[in-house]
Computed example of a mutant assay.
Amino acid sequence: MIRIVIADDHIVVRSGLSALLQGKNDIEVIGDAADGDEAIAKAEELNPDVVLMDFSMPPGKDGLTATAELKQKMPHVGVLILTMHDDEEYLFRAIHAGASGYILKSAPHEELIAAIRSVADGTAYLYPSATKKLMKEYSDMIRRGESDGPYETLSDREKEIMAWIAKGYSNKEIAEQLIISVKTVESHKSNLMDKLGLKSRPELVKLAMKKGLMTYD
């Protein structure tokens, strides 16, 4: 039996997923959680094979932070991110956090079951278009021949702000964390984007992951 913990902030979603999964002969739902902290606690208590983790669970701990913490404590537990975000930025953040799989909430039930079984078997699972995005990114990196040179020109403060941006924080939130003005954050952001030759946040996220800046505390 594949033992599952479901983590989602909506009780209706948890109930629906539980009803769906309990109908499978090889899957058993052994617990559920409403946020990241509860998901970690349930995993430590019940030792599941897979945690089906929602990406966003306000106001509690989000799925990515919980995934990173859970994989540190229980690396043998597979985490399958269930999300509505069909966006490469979220995909790369999930992979960096240690997720074993990433699937959309809009996916057919059969695909969700297949994803759970794959993760339980120790095989990474990505929905089809996500695989294409990863392949394209890898091809683009090879074509660009990405150099580490520009990154080394960043100041320590620029690297720090780059890490906050990559984790999804707004300019205002970064300013509050670092006790500086929003205008200063914007200036540093503009400078580092220019130095690195980046055009978008997803590009920044990928480089931040490569440089090991996206640790989760």
Results as ranks from 00 to 15, higher is better:
L196G: 06
K183T: 15
L196N: 10
S200Q: 08
G168T: 07
M193Y: 07
I174Y: 07
Y169L: 14
L204E: 00
M193L: 14
L196Y: 12
I180N: 06
R201N: 10
A175K: 04
E173S: 11
S187G: 09
K195D: 05
K195T: 15
G168H: 06
I165D: 01
E186W: 02
S200C: 03
A163L: 04
D194C: 07
A163I: 02
K172P: 00
H188I: 05
L198D: 01
A166Y: 03
L192V: 03
E203W: 09
D194Q: 14
L196K: 10
G168L: 08
D194K: 12
P202C: 08
E173Y: 03
N171T: 05
I179K: 13
E186S: 15
I180K: 14
T184K: 12
K189W: 01
N171E: 07
K189T: 13
A166W: 02
E176F: 09
R201A: 11
E176A: 12
A166F: 01
L198E: 00
K195L: 12
L192A: 02
N191E: 15
V182Y: 10
Q177H: 14
L196V: 09
G168A: 08
L178E: 13
S170E: 08
K183S: 15
I165G: 00
H188K: 12
W164T: 00
A175L: 02
V182H: 13
L198F: 03
V185L: 02
I174F: 05
Q177S: 11
T184C: 04
L178N: 08
G197Y: 12
G197F: 10
I174M: 05
I180S: 06
K199S: 15
N191M: 13
P202V: 04
L192S: 03
K167R: 15
N191L: 13
L198C: 03
S187F: 11
I179N: 13
A166M: 03
L178S: 08
K195I: 13
S187H: 13
A175D: 02
L192K: 03
K172C: 01
V182T: 10
E176C: 02
S181W: 05
R201I: 15
S187I: 10
P202D: 05
G168Q: 08
S200M: 05
K199I: 02
K167C: 04
S170N: 05
S190L: 12
A166N: 07
K183L: 11
M193N: 03
